[in-house]
Every structure is written in structure tokens, then in C-alpha cells.
Nucleic acid binder design. Structure first.
Lengths: 201, 201
DNA sequence: GTCTATAGAGGGATAGAC
DNA sequence: GTCTATCCCTCTATAGAC
């Protein structure tokens, strides 16, 4: 569970706001949203707790923004990587690699927050986040459907359910995968391909 | 996320202790351990908050016992179902079905607590729970190794990693699978088989 | 074994000076 | 934009009556 210095949301500017969000991603992942206090957070960015509320109206607002930033960043990255893929197998691999990167790379802590602190969002925020995620999910479904037409995925496989299995399989890697070992993200992505592709193309 | 009446840990006696644990599984899943208060819990079982502490020394102790009970129950059930399986494919199917049942059936809420409230355990409790889970995990690994020898799983697949992918894939079903629809647990288990078995036996 | 009452600690958020 | 000070609330856990 990433004790590494991957606590900074990549691409986040070095502003008080950015520093608060980066520290929040780290703290919320480590202790959980409820246990992590605004005082903890203030200390992490070198402020007094009262000052935090100049940048965000409530603690929940901080959580919401961590989630928005991480979805935006990872959706954009996946779009880029999809464009670079040559064939369909390459596209599936790009999706796998991209998501494993999201979960285990620099945005890993924020992704864990996105997944595990869901209940701490207000219902309105949940709705908002859900809509952002749908764009991302649609990219997966489109590629899976193409792969099915191309014969890389069995005819009788429900791609909707398959995507859900994969969401779980890849998301869970946050709990056990340790970057820097013998197995790098690319290799892990290759292994994950056999969960999806027929035979084992 | 199960709003159904699956809040009772099957096999749990109708004692104050049992009722507290069953209500705790439900509440901790719904609100998270931190947000769920002892007062909530007391109300759910028809007591005053002070009375809860006659049965459990601390709130964490309640969490710990929910986890212990659900592991014990599901480990035992899986052992039984494994015995009934005829061949190796049947054993893999039994594992899948059994775990999907744990996650989505009567013990679903307690399983979600086991997975998502991990950080709220004291380190000593974490160690204890980890040891209980290892027995369960070993059953999976043994069957996977048999399946590999029998040629049902590709030679070059790392069964350790495969098990981790499957843990995630099946565990995540708690968030989207709704029992009572067109797809029952057995059918879902069959679908999940293709994540593991070669070709798609 | 359950109740009432409350101690004791820590939390989110606000107000106003600088 | 950050600080100090603090309000006000809620929470876990305890004490002692019944």
C-alpha cells in the first residue's frame, strides 16, 4: 500500500490547493477519510487547521476534489495511450496497462481514495463523480466490443460483466502489488491479458 | 450494496452477542466503521449505548469479532463444498461459487466489512485476522496447482498472481451484483470460470 | 444484563486579528 | 492567505443504580 513518495497527483501545480489535495490523497488512503483529521492534513502541508478552510469550504469538499482530479488525469492519460495502440490486442493491453498504472503509480493513493472512500461523499457528489467515471468506463466497453467482433473475446462473453471482473481484479492490485520488484507494470499487464483474451492470444 | 435482510450472519445464535454482531456487520458496511456509532448499533439491537459495553470491551473488539465469525463460517462452508466436487473443474467451480456466495449472500455485508474496514483494526488484530485468512487462501492455491498439473490452467500462469486477480474480481461483485435478478450466483460462477480456465473448458 | 448519566477527549468549522 | 482562539458538537467508554 504505497509508502512511496507517490503522494503527489501528477500534473498538480505547486499551489496551496494542490499541496492540500496531494496530502489529502495520501492521508485519506492511509487512515481513511474519517480517521484523517483536518489537523493532520494541516500539519502535513505546514499550516494551521483553520487555514485549510480558506481553500476548501468543508472536509468533504477536499475529498470530492481529490476524486475529480484523479479521474480527469487518468481518463486523459488512457485516451492518449489508446490512440498510440496499433491493433485491437494492443488496445486491450493499453487499457490494462493504463489502469494498472493509475492504481499502482503516482495516482495510486488517490485511486484508492476514489474506490474506498465512496461512502463519505454526499449523495450529490456521488452523482457527480459517477458521471465523470462513465466516460472512462465507456472507453473500456468500446474496446471490448471491438475485441469481440475481431474474435479476440468469446462470442458468449458478456463484456459488461467482464469489465466488472476486470475492474475488481486490477483495482485489488493496489493491496498487493509492490512496484520496484521483479514484476513491473507492463509485465503485470501482460499477465492480466489472459483473463480477457481467448485461448491466450 | 445489499439493502436486503442479509444482515444476519448465518449460523449465529440469537443471543445479545449474536444480535450485536449481526447488526454491526450491517451498520459497518453501510456507513463505515468510523461513521457508525455505538449509539446507532445500540438502537439497532434495542439497547442503550452503555449496555453494548457489557458484551464487548471496545468498539474495535466488535469489528474484530465480526471478521473472525465471517472467516470461520466461510472457510468451513468452502471446505464442505470442495469435498462434494467430483473433478478438478468442479473444484475450481466450487471455489468460485463458494466465494461469490460469501460475498453476495447472507454473509455479504460481513465480507465487505472484512475487506474494507481493515485499517480500523489494531495491528495485533490485523495479524490475527491475517492468520485466519491464510488457511482459506491455501485451499485456493492447492486447487489451482492441481488444475495446472491437470492442464486446465496454462503452464506459464503464476497461480499466486492469478488468485489475487480472482480475489479482486469476485470481491468487487459486492458493489454491482444484485441477487434475485436474471443472473444467479451459479451462473455468475460459471462466467467467472473463463477468467481462469484454459481455452474455456 | 440493562438502564441513566456523564466524564473526558477530539473533531469540524468559524471569527477576527494581522 | 495565514494565524490564534475557541465554539459547539459528537463520540467512546465508564460508574453506579436497579
Amino acid at each position: 500500500m504505497g509508502t512511496k513518495a507517490n503522494s503527489l497527483l501528477a500534473g498538480m501545480e505547486d499551489t496551496p490547493r494542490g499541496r492540500i489535495l496531494a496530502a489529502a490523497a495520501h492521508l485519506f488512503q492511509k487512515k481513511g477519510f474519517e480517521r484523517a483529521t483536518v489537523r493532520d492534513l494541516a500539519q502535513a502541508v505546514g499550516m494551521q487547521s483553520g487555514s485549510i478552510f480558506h481553500h476548501f469550504k468543508t472536509k468533504e469538499e477536499i475529498l470530492r476534489n481529490v476524486m475529480i482530479e484523479v479521474i480527469r488525469f487518468n481518463t486523459e492519460r488512457m485516451e492518449q495511450e489508446l490512440k498510440n495502440a496499433k491493433d485491437i490486442r494492443g488496445k486491450v493491453l493499453a487499457l490494462m496497462k493504463s489502469e494498472l498504472q493509475s492504481v499502482n503509480g503516482e495516482t495510486g493513493e488517490a485511486m484508492a481514495v476514489l474506490i474506498y472512500e465512496w461512502r463519505s461523499l454526499k449523495p450529490e457528489s456521488q452523482q457527480e463523480i459517477l458521471e465523470l467515471r462513465e466516460v472512462y468506463e465507456q472507453m473500456w466497453l468500446n474496446v471490448f466490443d471491438d475485441a469481440k467482433e475481431a474474435g479476440l473475446i468469446e462470442e458468449d462473453v458478456d463484456t459488461f460483466i467482464l469489465r466488472r471482473f476486470i475492474t475488481g481484479a486490477l483495482g485489488w492490485s493496489n493491496f498487493w502489488y509492490k512496484p520496484g520488484g521483479a514484476l513491473d507494470i507492463s509485465a503485470l499487464a501482460e499477465k492480466s491479458l489472459s483473463l480477457v483474451l481467448k485461448g491466450k492470444c
